[in-house]
Design a protein around this nucleic acid. Sequence first.
DNA 1: CTGTTAGCGCCTTCAG
DNA 2: CTGAAGGCGCTAACAG
Lengths: 339, 339
Amino acid sequence: MRRPFNTITIRDVAQSLNISISTVSRALRDTYDVSQTTRQKVLEKASELNYKPNYSAIGLVQGKTHNISIILPLVTNYYFSTVITGIQQVAYNRDYNVILYLTNDSQEKELQIIQNLPLGCLDGLLVSTSFRSNAFGHYQKIIKEGSPVVFFDRSVDGVHTSRVLQDDFNGAYQATEHLIASGYTKIAHITGPKEMIITQKRLAGYRQALRRYKLPLNDKWVIHSGFSQECGEQDTLHLLEGGSKPDAIFAINDRKAIGAMVALKKKNIRIGTQIGVAGFTNDPISGIISPTLTTVAEPAFEIGKISCELLLKHLQKKYFEPEEIILPGKLYIRESTMR
Amino acid sequence: MRRPFNTITIRDVAQSLNISISTVSRALRDTYDVSQTTRQKVLEKASELNYKPNYSAIGLVQGKTHNISIILPLVTNYYFSTVITGIQQVAYNRDYNVILYLTNDSQEKELQIIQNLPLGCLDGLLVSTSFRSNAFGHYQKIIKEGSPVVFFDRSVDGVHTSRVLQDDFNGAYQATEHLIASGYTKIAHITGPKEMIITQKRLAGYRQALRRYKLPLNDKWVIHSGFSQECGEQDTLHLLEGGSKPDAIFAINDRKAIGAMVALKKKNIRIGTQIGVAGFTNDPISGIISPTLTTVAEPAFEIGKISCELLLKHLQKKYFEPEEIILPGKLYIRESTMR
DNA sequence: CTGTTAGCGCCTTCAG
DNA sequence: CTGAAGGCGCTAACAG
């Protein structure tokens, strides 16, 4: 029961040219030796007939499906949706389909997805791991079985593969340094789950800046929780309850920074003058909200683009040396850190 | 040159059970008559061996690839990213892969995508059309050739197929009515391209409300342009330049409404008291921005979910009756329309 | 440079 | 109820 409609195949172009199927196949792929004349004719006929390769068939015979998949926590934020846009653009230009999987930031769901992945119709994976995921083994296995994996943004430790990341350490360092330069001395950090690399790196950058400028490191001023705005709001309320209140808050991302701003507004604390706030991402909302939010811009589109290029590069070769690419961020100074 | 690694196939489970491939195939699909005992054994073995169907092969033989694709303008906004989340969830639960295509809101790109679509490895399409797209013929052709298409949000006229939409007319009517009830009398509408159905419906709702409450319809107060924040900003500046200025602005979406707010702030016009602003979408930003934005909430997630369910339903049958599903919106009244 | 043959993993007649 | 055989569209040896 094949598709009932007029999908035209290489056989069709072969017949209408009175040559063999394999010659058409070769001409189309521009491989082996085919005479220029034949290739010309084939190419013309193919486009005349509007021939389109059947990737299912190609996938079957040579294991190249022209499908790559993205596994990521969610798409409903600026960062991830922009990364996807970058990935899709590169993939589209290279005739790859992008298949989307959403983990919903749940470790359980992520594991479920990985285990049920139709690897048979996937050439490779781009993944940003979920929350506290420690799916080492699973990713290792996938790679061993022959599907290249490139991590972006949130990666998993201990897996020997490529990664494309923003410079979390230096971004956090810059933001903190800016807060210090602006005169804030009691700088808190509201961040993500402890186990995540992204958390650790940004925290390290923050600490390094404090150390460099001889400011005290107060563990009470570092709060770990999730990445959402609500988390930012709650973390901030916690900070305000404590005995010695901070005079600035550096959030791991803009969402949490905005949560902090919401909390401060509710408490009638003046943002900037009383408590400075800085974020990380440069979500467009950071330029719209009032006061506007100082933040470290992440090159989201670039990260998507480069991740995909790297994956496609890996797909060419049988063996590849993992690469780690780190892209710099850029600090945008806005009203939320003006005293 | 098949995949070099241990992808296990029905042949593997057949051999380890000493039965034929076809029996395994039948047992797995729960079709034809297979003895309960055999089926049991096959099912157990399959899961023991972690067998996963190769959709490329299945696709080849029976034209069912378990791939559906989404074609839409962009993912970097609240509405579309939420719709996608809904689609992905349904598809995932039904073992369908979701392939993503981005038109970048360019008609040209959309046409290019449609024409190059690897229909051979796609069971159906979910599409929200680009901007001023009038790709009637192309979609018609795809449908005729056997790939079901379900439109969501932005649809194309004249194509006989299913659609899932929010209630654009009544949403716009409600928003306008609310503005009127709040005491605004000179209500402008900044909207999308004239040719788009979504524009036409929201415009009609706006006009209907004005008519119903005997307010004048002033064509100078209806401005057509794109959907971006920048467009909203420019449209608003235009409105302010005119002789008779409006005292309220209803925008086709929150992005443009926010653009309007930005423009008003720059001109030092008090939002709400001097000029009211209402949007459409209920982007989370509308509750964060100051003043908070009155808007008509669109059931984005539901739209994605239902669209996908509808498409999958269509995939079951050979012939299906197109359905048009319209979901209601809900007005959220916030500060931007308080005098 | 080109045609022939076999087979990728699976489903579907057609025989038992 | 089950097995054998053929083929989906395409590529990859193997011969010329």
